[in-house]
């Protein structure tokens, strides 16, 4: 390894560099409003400064000018600009491909094309480049909020409701999102990654979601798979072709291919996987998964290697 750097662990998580149409339009609005706010601030402080130096009463027209006319002009402009931006980015495209994202304490369930093929993944959302996608946002427990600053603004996931938002990613790469509504003990540890791929790679990814998970082709991986099957993991987790149906926990069919572990928090590798399995409750307090600290050493190693191999 040359020059290891933690900076590459996570995708970009800032609204200042936009990689989606929503964030793009908002950034323009943000910049314009910031400049206008700065100018108005300087004008008001200038008025304070003039008032300080002055020694006789001013005209009541200042109240009308500064308190009514100036705000009306500024606000009128703002409301118009904001409404047009909202109209541009707030529209939900019913024809676009749908990705259903369901918030859980403290992870994200993801289903591509829920009405059709229902391709399931978790904690990593793959988006096609330059193609509008409608996100369908739900929650299984408390209120969460879906936020990928570089792609678009946030939208809450409210029990009993489905909120929809259409996003278009305009730059390939990795971006980080995070739950933005306080959702309990491990709220700060509820992040995810968005990976934007060109159309061809995106199609390949979807194809990958249809096929069975990679086979356990060595003795150790086979032992890992058996541990997975026999130690109760399948009560909550599914691996396509191995144990399907369980939905209480993230789908693990391609866990090894994700960049991060534990909902966008740790770099995906055997070391973190082993530590995670053996002591989830220490790494993510309040998570639904118990710590599997009763596995024998070789079993723990085997299952960690097995999961890391699922790419």
């Amino acid at each position: 390894m040359n020059g290891p750097s933690t900076l590459d662990t996570y995708g970009s998580q800032t609204s200042f560099s936009s990689a989606g149409t929503g964030a793009d339009a908002t950034l323009v609005l943000t910049t314009a409003m910031s400049v206008a706010a700065a100018v108005i601030f300087l004008l008001v402080m200038g008025a304070v400064w003039l008032a300080w130096r002055r020694d006789r009463p001013g005209s009541v027209w200042w109240i009308w000018g500064g308190g009514v006319i100036l705000p009306v002009i500024a606000l009128g402009t703002l409301v118009v600009a904001s409404t047009f931006t909202l109209a541009a980015i707030g529209r939900v495209d019913d024809g676009a491909p749908v990705i259903e994202v369901t918030g859980h304490q403290y992870w994200w369930d993801i289903v591509h094309d829920p009405e059709g093929r229902a391709l399931r993944d978790a904690n990593e959302i793959v988006l096609p480049l330059n193609i509008p996608v409608t996100l369908s946002l739900k929650t299984e427990d408390v209120i969460h909020s879906f936020w990928v600053p570089s792609i678009a603004g946030k939208m809450d996931m409210v029990p009993g409701r489905i909120n929809r938002m259409t996003v278009t990613a305009t730059e390939a790469g990795r971006f980080r999102g995070q739950c933005a509504e306080f959702c309990g003990l491990s709220h700060p540890l509820m992040a995810f990654e968005v990976v934007v791929l060109p159309q061809a790679e995106y199609d390949a990814y979807l194809e990958d979601l249809r096929s069975e998970a990679r086979d356990a082709d060595t003795a150790q991986l086979a032992r890992g798979r058996d541990v997975f099957l026999n130690e109760g993991c399948i009560a909550c987790h599914a691996i396509r072709g191995v144990a399907e149906g369980a939905r209480l926990g993230p789908d693990l069919s391609r866990i090894g291919a994700r960049a991060t572990l534990g909902a966008g928090m740790w770099r995906m590798n055997v070391g973190n996987l082993a530590g995670w399995i053996a002591d989830v409750q220490d790494m993510k307090p309040g998570a639904q998964m118990p710590s599997y600290n009763h596995l024998s050493g070789p079993d723990l190693r085997a299952v960690a290697h097995y999961l890391a191999s699922l790419k």
């Binding site: 390894m1 933690t6 740790w266 770099r267 070391g271 082993a274 995670w276 002591d279």
Partner: peptide, 8 residues
């Protein structure tokens, strides 16, 4: 950090 030693 890279190899995840800190998980354990």
């Amino acid at each position: 950090v890279e190899y995840g030693c800190g998980a354990c």
